[in-house]
Design a protein around this nucleic acid. Structure first.
Lengths: 214, 214
DNA sequence: ACCGAACTACTACTTTGGGAGTAGTTTACG
DNA sequence: CGTAAACTACTCCCAAAGTAGTAGTTCGGT
């Protein structure tokens, strides 16, 4: 069997964790960490530049978060396999990541040996999911069945940002300031988002949103 | 000045992170990692056995979580200083940790140099808090004020009926019809109820209500 | 090169929401 | 009996929300 080298790009805003992972992976002759990024923007740039076999992507980053980064990477036609590496075993995070095109989802408390094995398998084109998440995933499929109506995923990024602010009680004006766009533009998004979700007012949107996330 | 050695116990269920931190701290001559624990139970045992100067404690662990561990340590009369080391900048986590007797709260995305400095200062008896948390902390004090404020019980029967309808997304006009009173009257009640609850709009009222009942 | 989706921003208009004030009625309580 | 709280309803006024239509930009995909 030919021993190919797997190239890896680490994306995580925790310097210490990057250090730990890098140290671990450097011990493996067939795995090479060719880059590190501390945020989504850098990650996208580096990914295009280095075309790593695999991107190990943290979910919780400030600025552009993991999911946004993932989506951006996919939109930029980055061919690297992307494995999310997160502390969260929340089904929403897992499902969102996979829906957004992640090739795997590993928990940060994974044992080192298992992490290494998973990276190899991911580079070979397999999908890798931490064992602990099987139950979580199974349950989330059942959830999907009952929520047939339109949901958050039918919203665009902007609309999603805006409905979140609505669910915090912000006015259009304030939302505009937060997102640095005109109030009139916010109104357009609100109108569209209400129509998509079949709601009649921002109050209903706020309620819907709050109940959603519980 | 006498150069004392600071002894540290790492408590975190992520092997990789422990590895990263240990590697970092081992480079400092005045800091010595004398033990590692992957869970709360081990942490308590080791703390009693080793009496480290400082315990760097992760919040999110399976089994006994960070806060439980912290409380247990305090109950066991462990004199070591305890600094929470967490990814979470959620004000609840921060406040709970400090209330439970933590001597500091550092975010995991702290820069290595800053982490080392903070550890030294913590060992010197100072309280160390990540800069990013100042705002969070300040806000949480305001929250406290507001939670001392009135609740549902301070509302009259009418106001209670009306806020319930608001939390179902109804307009003043519709509420008026439901209760067979004029829209103008509904407005009066809404105005009064907003003032009592210290809210700024019906949207906030709806959110507050929905979160209340769950 | 063209198309469509998303995002932006405007004008113009209507409806809804919310503040402030006045005031009449009912009801419970000392 | 008097009074205070709750409920009712109005007016006036302005701010916020929401609808409709036009239109420019950017960006990814066919």
């Amino acid at each position: 069997m030919t021993q190919t080298t797997h190239t890896v790009l680490l994306v995580d805003d925790h310097p210490l964790l990057r250090k730990g992972v890098r140290q671990l992976l450097d011990l493996e002759i067939d795995i090479k960490v060719i880059g590190e990024a501390a945020n989504g923007k850098d990650a996208v740039v580096l990914a295009k530049e280095l075309t790593p076999d695999l991107i190990l992507l943290d979910l919780s980053m400030k600025g552009m978060d993991g999911i946004e980064t993932l989506v951006t990477l996919r939109e930029a036609n980055v061919k690297s396999r992307v494995v999310v590496f997160s502390v969260s075993d929340d089904s929403n995070d897992v499902v969102t990541a996979l829906k957004s095109g992640a090739d795997g989802y590993l928990l940060k408390d994974t044992e080192p040996e298992e992490l290494i094995e998973s990276i190899r398998r991911a580079c070979d084109g397999k999908m890798v999911i931490s064992d602990e998440l099987n139950e979580v995933l199974a349950l989330s499929f059942r959830e999907q069945q009952k929520s047939l109506g339109p949901d958050l995923n039918s919203l665009t990024r902007r609309e999603l940002q805006i409905i979140k602010y609505i669910a915090e009680g912000l006015s259009n004006k304030l939302i505009g300031r937060k997102l640095d766009i005109a109030e009139s533009t916010v109104k357009v998004h609100v109108k569209n988002l209400l129509k998509k979700l079949n709601l009649r007012s921002r109050v209903e949107a706020a309620i819907w949103m709050v109940e959603q996330k519980k």
